[in-house]
Design a protein around this nucleic acid. Sequence first.
DNA 1: CTCGTGACGGGGG
DNA 2: TCCCCCGCCACGA
Length: 121
Amino acid sequence: MPVSEKQYQERVYEIVRKIPEGKVMTYGQIAEILGQGYTPRTVGYVMNASNTDDVPWQRVINAKGGCSTAKITMIVDLQQNLLEDEGIEFNESGYCDLDVYRWYPEGYEEEDDEQPTLFGS
DNA sequence: CTCGTGACGGGGG
DNA sequence: TCCCCCGCCACGA
């Protein structure tokens, strides 16, 4: 029994669940924190599988500060609506100010020096 | 196994 | 601000 995919998703959810109301995080930001094989793409894939789970999925947006969600435009409307309900303001283009609403998990904001010493051979 | 696609991101025009 | 292209990784046909 290999490392279940569930664990892979759990690490993403674990972070998303910590996002307080009125705050947001980007896919890339989450991928950055998890590192090790996580990329914005994979994080987005995980969130897609989640959706109606017990995680505040609406607080995860793209780096532009908007709700991507491509085709399913109806979801974009829902997501932005939920966030506006939490006090987040979106401009006419559908973007919010990440410099204001972006949230940083405790213990992860400071990641300046991370030079691996055991880099093999 | 290869190919196309996607709740992404960054760079360039 | 918007549009396009490329890199990224996982998945389904």
